[in-house]
Amino acid sequence: MANYITDLFYGVGDKERFVDGVSHALNTLQSDGIFAGDNLITWNKNMGFLRDDKFISAIKDNNPDLQEESLIWRLHTLCWAARQCSRLEGDFVEAGVYKGFTVKVLCDYLGFNDLARDYYLYDVFYHTPDMKHHALSSHSDQLYTQVCERLRDYPRVKVVQGLVPDSFVKGMPEKIAFMHIDMNNADAEVAVLDQLYERLVPGGMIVFDDYGWLWYGAQQHAEDAWLSQRHYERILELPTGQGLLVKL
């Protein structure tokens, strides 16, 4: 039985003390199937995705840093949802791309070039103080070019630079099978729903990366309100901090 244990946790004041405490607690368990990282600690779980060689290779082959590697359970959620949706008619969308790591993992895992569809990516790729989303360490004027280069082997991946929703004028899919939304900003994520939700085909899925994280409570509130006003489906909050919606 595999375990996955890392010291990647967020919002911890005294990290050394916290990690020591976690290690002590885990050492008391008479159980395998332990996962610790990305603010998720659980045990006695099968974690079958750790035995999926193709999935693990898709991560390792992209040379993840420690933070990216710690997202493995979130990445499993994405790959599972995208694989299910690959059976449907429609393109894929990612709103909030950053370094393109998750897109590249997903494309490698699915063999995206064989799926006969487009993958639309939307991001501004840089940050200025007036922007509502928070800055990340790799935001820069060069990031857009770096992401395009990273995804060069996937010609049907379309990297669209600009602020949402204005950048949608550069191109949008007519039908969508799968969306991943990770914009760290409630207004931008609602704008994505405004423009693209009706293009999501029945059975299509949206994975919201920030939905279950307390720091991004404004996004959960805004997205729940948007769906409720339209009497649409509800989002399932996952222990990974993600949210999952299946359009009926």
Rank of each mutant, 00 (worst) to 15 (best):
D61W: 05
Y10G: 01
V192E: 06
D210P: 04
N185K: 00
T145D: 14
F112C: 00
F55E: 09
V201Q: 11
I56C: 11
L151Q: 06
T145A: 14
L227Q: 03
K132L: 10
K45D: 07
K170S: 13
A36H: 03
D20L: 11
V12Y: 13
V19F: 13
G171C: 09
F55I: 09
G217N: 15
V105R: 02
H76E: 12
V157K: 02
I235L: 13
G13F: 05
A186L: 04
R150K: 15
H180L: 14
L50H: 08
D166G: 06
N39W: 07
H133P: 00
A95R: 03
N113Y: 01
V19H: 06
G33N: 10
T77N: 12
E69R: 14
P155Y: 10
E174M: 07
F208E: 01
D7Q: 09
F125H: 05
L29K: 09
M1W: 05
Q146H: 08
E198F: 01
A81D: 03
G100N: 04
T42M: 13
V160K: 06
K54F: 00
V103Y: 01
Q30M: 06
L78R: 11
G100M: 02
D91P: 07
L196H: 07
I56L: 15
P155E: 10
F125V: 03
N62T: 06
R117V: 01
V105C: 09
